[in-house]
Design a protein around this nucleic acid. Structure first.
Lengths: 346, 346
DNA sequence: TTGTAAGCGTTATCAC
DNA sequence: GTGATAACGCTTACAA
């Protein structure tokens, strides 16, 4: 179906110059006589010539494409991350290939291979787990890789993440200050180190207050699943006075669960979650949330990647970015007596 | 930085065969003796060989990559759309290049060019406006293009969209049935035909009920802007009893505005929006919303694209997919007397 | 300053 | 069934 596009030779013959000159005009590599420049530009315009990037990359051995792999583009958190990366990449003259692993290590490896097929200058990846299934392939391919939002044990890659422990502790302190002594923490999987870090921060904070209790529960991967598990837990006594969800999907699940249990936020129970989204500030009540510095993470990851692309061979670095906590009404209620905790939901 | 990867020649010499045989083994194009197959596969495994897709494309003149351009990947609506497309593309053996136009026609053209650089088999595009800035380029390049979610006047492309008119009318009827006689409609731009179609549907529905009034207001592109404009309007009398937002961003803006005006949903005012998102069903009150069939749109667009890629030269087709309306509490209040409409918000 | 020609890694063609 | 070899569109020595 696709018609044959004009090649650099078509342009050259139309402008009455050599292909080398066309290339030099288009890439501004060497100076070309003004008249020839004009002739080439006219030919390009008339033909609607657009150079073949693959051929150029093949010959020049330098890539103008980079890749990013996330678990799920449809998740607004990754959507925002990719969106920022796309802007920085474009700014630096790179195209960006976007792939999703679907949270499946097998797919992760497959997609990484697909990316490498393009011979990208570098890849930014948010692995599904701490393993990074395709790491062997990646190393073999010698493509610079920067890992974001996860902390693989493997010290081979640059890492950009947030200060999970400190931030989770800060949220916990906030709840403790509000008088909460029994906090339910919803985590999607304890196998992921960023989740473990958050758990550590939470426990450390709770340990500073006698009688404070945290209960960390593992919820599957779907909103529905987490919702059901939270409902099941809330129907048992003693009921926690606050719920702390460790990502945006879990916040949705928890909110659904609270509604179904007819628990009013913040009167009956407090809610705070990792990941701040626009809707959280306009609903009633507005939700307290941890705002991750998505833009800064993307910038930092890109900067590291570019450094590696430019030949930086220093040891892998690990960056930790600070989050901020957006305190809103969902945690506004002061609890001085934890008596309600003993009442189970009907 | 990037080390030199093994080429097909490296593999061939290691396996003691010709490059042609390696190619035949890898692409299963011609039958190869089992023993040679085994030798090649071993060499590939040992070297971690991954073929260069660009070179293959260049020589074979057939593309295994497609492109998608949306106004903004960070918008969950487009995120979901791209996510579905990525799955279907992968399923059919294609890679997917994702680019954002940022809602800027200039960027749209630039990004389209960047896409064409990679010689994709086809492109699915959600244009920023009805013009599709890069259409000339696209036509010149002869790349099959399918337009989604917009209805350009230009009849050159296949189009996949939803039945805007009918759905907007259905929502309006729903509000009228609930007793609303003064509906404020928030549109981001009246220049876009899908918005115009929705407006037409709304007016047609309202015209069937004597005394019913609709007020269509243009809100800029940002959440903040729409929020401010809605606030300004709500502070004037007569106040509408229902707000109908024409996309997900406007729903966020409207909700923020209602909160700021201290109007309770649905008691003081009803709210319904185009685009259904997960949070809308878990907040209090849950929001009535039009669910667009994102998955079906993506599938339909992909199917059309594949048909064109396979040589279908029939006249461009236009597909209209039905939406569903998710009725929830935000429009549950029955209004029999519109007396409140005369009270302005303080 | 400009043209000629080689070659990037792959696949298609054509001998064998 | 297999191997040489040319060619895809481009960039880049090198020659003029």
């Amino acid at each position: 179906m696709s018609i044959k596009l004009p090649s650099i030779r078509t342009v050259a013959s139309r402008a009455g110059v050599s292909t080398a000159t066309v290339s030099n005009v288009l890439n501004a590599r060497r100076s070309v006589a003004p008249e020839l420049v004009a002739r080439v530009e006219q030919a390009v315009a008339e033909l609607g010539y657009i150079a073949d990037g693959s051929a150029a990359r093949l010959r020049s051995r330098k890539s103008s494409v980079t890749g990013v792999m996330v678990p799920d583009i449809a998740n607004p958190f990754y959507g925002a991350f990719v969106s920022v990366l796309e802007g920085t990449a474009r700014h630096d003259g790179y195209d960006l290939l976007v792939v999703s692993s679907g949270g499946d290590p097998t797919q992760e490896t497959a997609r990484l291979k697909a990316l490498i097929t393009w011979r990208p200058a570098g890849i930014i990846v948010v692995p599904c787990d701490d393993t990074l299934a395709g790491r062997t392939i990646a190393r073999a391919a010698g493509v610079p890789i920067v890992v974001a939002d996860r902390i693989p044990a493997d010290p081979d890659f640059d890492i950009v993440a947030v200060d999970n422990r400190q931030m989770a502790a800060a949220v916990t302190f906030h709840l403790l200050e509000r008088g909460h002594r029994h906090i339910l923490v919803a985590a999607h999987s304890l196998a992921v180190s960023s989740v473990q870090e958050r758990g550590t921060g939470i426990r450390a904070a709770a340990a500073t207050v006698p009688g404070a209790e945290v209960e960390i529960l593992e919820m599957g991967r779907s909103i529905q699943e987490s919702r059901q598990r939270i409902i099941a837990r809330l129907r048992q006594a003693p009921r926690p006075t606050a719920v702390f969800t460790l990502n945006n999907l879990l916040t949705l699940g928890a909110l659904g669960a609270l509604t179904e249990c007819r628990l009013k936020v913040p009167d009956d129970i407090a809610l705070v979650g990792f990941d701040d989204e626009e809707w959280m500030r306009v609903v009633t009540p507005p939700l307290t949330a941890v705002r991750q510095p998505i833009q800064q993470m993307a910038h930092a990851a890109w900067e590291r990647l570019m450094a590696r692309v430019d030949g930086d061979t220093s040891p892998p670095q690990q960056f930790r970015l600070p989050c901020t906590i957006e305190i809103r009404e969902s945690t506004s209620r002061l609890k001085d007596v934890p008596q309600l905790a003993d009442l189970a939901v009907s």
